[in-house]
Every structure is written in structure tokens, then in C-alpha cells.
């Protein structure tokens, strides 16, 4: 039963009570945080890269992290121990033995995690979604992320770029990690560079050693550029 005013009329939204035009700028797709996926084989250094990016970017960007590791708290603990991100800014997603399914075929749990972070922390600039360690065919769905970084390491063998696969071939950025180990494992960085160029065309590749560059400065610069160019578009 609707409430009636004393003159018998039912109040409604027009006339003097009209709220007028919405004072807020229209929400656009770009209001949500930029989402960058970080994938790659087991042990290639994804979590170390995430920690390094947090170290480099946490002071200038509002950022959060979603992890898909089977050790649900391991990656989050790593980030906490390294003092780069509070626990409230890290979410872990279980993947039911199929890490690639959770980032590619059925992204619902990761989308929930991303949206929960934004709902609880307020507007964010950047969310890093770290995949569980998988193989060379695992890539992120475009329904989950805006851009993706694929991480391989020199200790996995200098043939990895030549093997290709969707991660190496199509990722927006290929990171070849642990270059400090190259002489120890007999990996030829020039071969990896040549093969990566052949596989990737104009897409960028960064060689790095987080042992020597704790903030992963080149990758951080690439991520910063992604955030900046997106703001410019908005």
C-alpha cells in the first residue's frame, strides 16, 4: 500500500523533488582497474615478479593481486613476508587441479575475486592476476584480463622461445627471467632473443634478473605505460 500525502496524492519522483541530472560522470568500462594477467610455467618466477612489481608500483598505484596457486596462502604469504602488500589486497582462487581452466575456460572465480577486491578496497588502478604454474599453452581469457605477461626462465632451457605456444607467441609482454643463471645452465641468451623475435614479431620481450634488479624496473615501466595509456584513452 503506497504512502499517500494529506491531499490524497501519491508522492512520486517529478516536480520539485526531481533530482535533476546525475551529477556524477557516467561510469565507463575504464572505471574499473586495469587487469594484467601474469602466466607461465611452474618455477619461472611469476610470484617473484608480482612481488617486484608491487615493490616498484605500490607507492604510485592503487593495486591488488589475485593468485591461483594450489598453495592457497603461499603466494599471499610471500607478498606479506616481503612487506609489499597487506593481506587485504591479496585474494587466492582455488582451481580444482586445472589452473588453465580458471584463467581461460571458466573465469568466474577469478572475476569474483577481482570484483570483490574492488568492492572492498574501493577504486583501484591495477589488479595483477597471477596464474598457477602451467605449461606453454596456458593463456588468459580476454574476458578476465586486459593484457598479459608470460614469464619463462633461462633455467627452463634456451629452446623455450623456439617451442612457441600461445603464451610465448601472443602474450602482450614476454619476460625471460633469471638471466643471472644463464652461464650456470648453459643457456644462450642471444638464441632466446633471436627465437623470441621470430615468434613474436613486434611484440616486446624483456630479459631480466630480479636477483639483480629487485624492482623488475623494465617490466614495471611497461606496466606503468599500460596503466597510463588506458587513463589517456578514458
Amino acid at each position: 500500500m503506497p504512502h499517500k500525502d494529506t491531499d490524497g496524492t501519491v508522492p512520486h519522483g517529478h516536480g520539485p523533488m526531481d533530482p535533476g541530472p546525475d551529477p556524477h560522470a557516467p561510469l565507463t568500462e575504464n572505471r574499473r582497474a586495469l587487469r594484467i594477467g601474469i602466466g607461465g610455467p611452474v618455477g619461472s618466477g611469476k610470484t617473484a615478479l608480482v612481488a617486484a612489481l608491487c615493490r616498484s608500483l605500490a607507492a604510485e598505484l592503487r593495486l591488488a593481486v589475485v593468485t591461483n596457486d594450489i598453495y592457497t596462502t603461499e603466494d599471499a604469504d610471500f607478498l606479506l613476508r616481503n612487506g609489499v602488500l597487506p593481506a587485504s589486497h591479496v585474494r587466492a582462487v582455488e582451481t580444482g587441479c586445472c589452473p588453465h581452466t580458471a584463467i581461460r575456460d571458466d573465469i568466474s572465480a577469478n572475476l569474483d575475486a577481482v570484483e570483490d577486491l574492488e568492492a572492498q578496497l574501493g577504486p583501484l588502478d591495477l589488479i595483477l592476476v597471477e596464474s598457477g604454474g602451467d605449461n606453454l599453452t596456458a593463456t588468459f581469457s580476454k574476458g578476465l584480463i586486459d593484457a598479459q605477461i608470460f614469464v619463462v626462465d633461462v633455467a627452463g632451457g634456451d629452446k623455450v622461445p623456439r617451442k612457441g605456444g600461445p603464451g610465448v607467441t601472443t602474450a602482450d609482454l614476454l619476460v625471460i627471467n633469471k638471466t643471472d643463471l644463464a652461464p650456470l645452465v648453459g643457456a644462450d641468451l642471444s638464441v632466446m632473443d633471436r627465437d623470441a623475435r621470430a615468434r613474436r614479431g613486434d611484440l616486446p620481450t624483456i630479459f631480466q634478473s630480479i636477483a639483480e634488479d629487485k624492482g623488475a624496473s623494465q617490466v614495471a615501466a611497461w606496466v606503468r605505460a599500460q596503466v597510463t595509456s588506458r587513463v589517456a584513452v578514458a
Partner: peptide
């Protein structure tokens, strides 16, 4: 079973 509705990550 391939419906992207989160079921793959649950074992009931």
C-alpha cells in the same frame, strides 16, 4: 560441464 559457472573448482 564446460558451462563457465565455477563448477570445475568444486569437488562436492
Amino acid at each position: 560441464g564446460r558451462l563457465p559457472a565455477g563448477g570445475h573448482a568444486h569437488s562436492s
